[in-house]
Design a protein around this nucleic acid. Structure first.
Lengths: 233, 233
DNA sequence: TGTATATGGTTGTATATACAACTAGAATTT
DNA sequence: AAATTCTAGTTGTATATACAACCATATACA
């Protein structure tokens, strides 16, 4: 049994929603209809619908049926995302630039994040990400040279730093902090932007297999960089 | 059958987690143990555990058991919350002040939100919420006097505007937009704060039964007003 | 001592069944 | 014509059962 049957049914419905065949408000097949269509028991068909209901894509009403929800759940907006993908999805040009690369001795905090001894030699690089030539993200990257010797030898003119990372090791940890602040002095002066620029989100990501920690600050956000959600009760 | 049995079991476990009896990493009772303890079938016990797993409170591993998750899911941080509750939870003093109350003719947008005809008479009030005497939220409230005559007669020195609302009608809709901007000129001048103050979150809430729409802006946010999440993969 | 193997306990998937609660519309009655 | 009742279809809850997949430990064997 490769993929469970209830997952197949779930994907079947989810795909139709995403493709626009089922639009918000539409009724999707009932449990019994799915039973016949896929030759499964009601509990199996039910599980597919229930799962989509739990995820907020369907609204199920006793006596009526299951309907495509009119509002997408907020959680889908808060996934751990790659800024390059996000920019490309908007059809804009993306580029990144490494502006510094220095050797540092790990502070105790840094050491803990990368699981090395305090005082160990690490590389600290600053990467700025651009959307349409406008800086949108400032990223501090700490690299453990013992694990990531490869990383230091890469030519980031031919491969973006993020693309290399996602190829080499899986993301193992991520924390986001969504906070409104003004950009700090360092960032403002390096990027020649106003210290009045608000910044939105600070995220820390760890690729432990590659020995890399990234702390990113989303700067200069506008409508394109807001998070939101909508509930109807 | 008042409350479903699987809900009872689910609450039983959830309560123990919240009370600290089960701490992150702990193993919770297995499906079979719950069967005996609550005299239910395995499918019922399973459903309670599965539900907690889906919500991210438990991690279930085949062959091992169900364990309390080490990281809370981000969604729980984004609930529709009451600012008064939030301030009180921090042990700080909360107060609110109605600073204007004017009669307006509904624009087409406003009319649509409250389901009245464009041009209908509405009341527009501005409420500022304080934490420890510091303004933290600016709220524009639109009130349909046909439905909310009561509201206009309240003495908000003895009951806070929010407390009255939650007593009188259920919240029916809410949308949040999390965005980093600077406070606008109007707010800055009325509250005598710097136009450089960042603001974080804009939320719109609707109490349709009471004919009230509220648009709130969270101003002057600091560490206390950030949202965040943490994932471990 | 080290390596297989067996075992008991756990979660995952799936079926068949039963009854309850709810809805809309049809059929019936008043 | 209007109100009531019935009915078919839907989701919700719950049980009993079966087998598969996985894990840690204990046991048997080499």
């Amino acid at each position: 049994m490769s993929t469970p049957r209830f997952i197949i049914i779930k994907n079947f419905i989810e795909d139709k929603i995403n493709a626009g065949e089922f639009t918000p408000g539409d009724r999707v097949p009932s449990e019994n209809e799915l039973c016949q269509q896929f030759s499964v028991s009601r509990m199996t068909a039910r599980r597919a619908l229930q799962s989509l209901n739990d995820e907020g894509l369907l609204i199920r009403t006793p006596g009526l049926g299951s309907f495509v929800a009119k509002h997408r759940p907020i959680s889908t907006l808060l996934e751990v995302r790659n800024i390059a993908d996000e920019v490309h999805e908007r059809g804009n040009s993306y580029s990144a630039k490494i502006i510094t690369m220095t050797e540092v001795e790990a502070t105790s905090q840094q050491a803990a994040m990368l699981n090395v001894a305090a005082g160990a030699i690490l590389y600290h690089s600053v990467i700025v990400h651009f959307e349409e030539e406008i800086p949108v993200q400032w990223e501090d990257r700490l690299v453990n040279p013992a694990l990531a010797a490869d990383y230091l030898l890469q030519d980031f003119n031919t491969i973006t730093p993020n693309a290399y990372l996602s190829k080499v090791a899986p993301l193992t940890e991520a924390s986001h902090k969504i906070e409104a602040t003004l950009v700090d002095q360092t960032i403002a002066s390096k990027l020649h932007i106003d210290t009045r620029s608000p910044c939105l989100q600070i995220s820390r990501r760890t690729w432990s297999a590659a020995g890399i920690v990234s702390i990113a600050t989303l700067i200069h956000p506008g409508d394109r960089y807001c998070l939101g959600g909508h509930w109807k009760i």
